[in-house]
Design a protein around this nucleic acid. Sequence first.
DNA 1: TTTGTATATCGATCATATCCGATACACTTA
DNA 2: TAAGTGTATCGGATATGATCGATATACAAA
Lengths: 96, 96
Amino acid sequence: MDRDEIFKALAHPARVNILAWLKEPQAHFPTQEHPFEMGVCAGQFERCGLSQSTVSSHLAILQRAGLVTTKRLGQWVFYKRNEETIAAFLKDIGSL
Amino acid sequence: MDRDEIFKALAHPARVNILAWLKEPQAHFPTQEHPFEMGVCAGQFERCGLSQSTVSSHLAILQRAGLVTTKRLGQWVFYKRNEETIAAFLKDIGSL
DNA sequence: TTTGTATATCGATCATATCCGATACACTTA
DNA sequence: TAAGTGTATCGGATATGATCGATATACAAA
C-alpha cells in the first residue's frame, strides 16, 4: 500500500470517478452485457468521454496504485475495485 | 470543500508531510521561538530541504485547497491545519 | 527614511502528466 | 490461417507541475 502513489492516482477526477462508478456497476454501466461478478469491462469506461487509449492509461494507473484489480476473460479485461487496498488507504489517512 | 483540488494538493509527498508535521508542531518544529498557538512560522518548513520559494509555493497550494489557514503577525506568517476542511474531506472520501 | 528580515511572486528550466491516433498484442471466430 | 474485436503500448504534441534564483512586497527597527 503505497500512500503517495495512491494520492497521485487520485489526483485526476476521471480516475476518482471510475473508482466511484465501480461501487455500483449495474447503476453506472447498464449497457454491459457480461455479468457484473467478473467486474466491469474495460471498454465500458469510454463513457467518460476520453479516447480508448487514454482510458486504458487511467485504468493502468489505478491498477499500479493497487486500487483496482483486473481479470482477463477471453478478449475482454474486467476491472474491479480492490477493497482491501482501498480500506487500508482510508484507514491510513484517517489520521491525516 | 473542493475534493478534486484537495486530492491534487495531496499528490505531492512534501505537502502531505507538511500537513502531518502540523499535527504536532512542538515535536517537529522544536526550533520555533514563537508560541505554537499562532501556528507554525513559514520559515520553519524549509526543513524539508527545498528552497524558500518552493516551500512557499507548496504552502500556497495547501492554502488554496483549504487544508491550512494562515495568519500574518508582523513580518511573519503562521500556518495552521484547517481541521474543519480536513474533517469534511475525510468524511467525504470515507465512502470512496 | 533607510536598513534588515520574512514571505510571496516572477521568470526560466526541467520533469511529469494528459491526451490522442496509430500500432502492437491477445483472443475469438470464420 | 485469416479476419475481426477488445485492450495495451508507443510516439508525439501540449499542458501542468516542480524547482530554483532573483526580485518584489510586507513589516519592523534603527
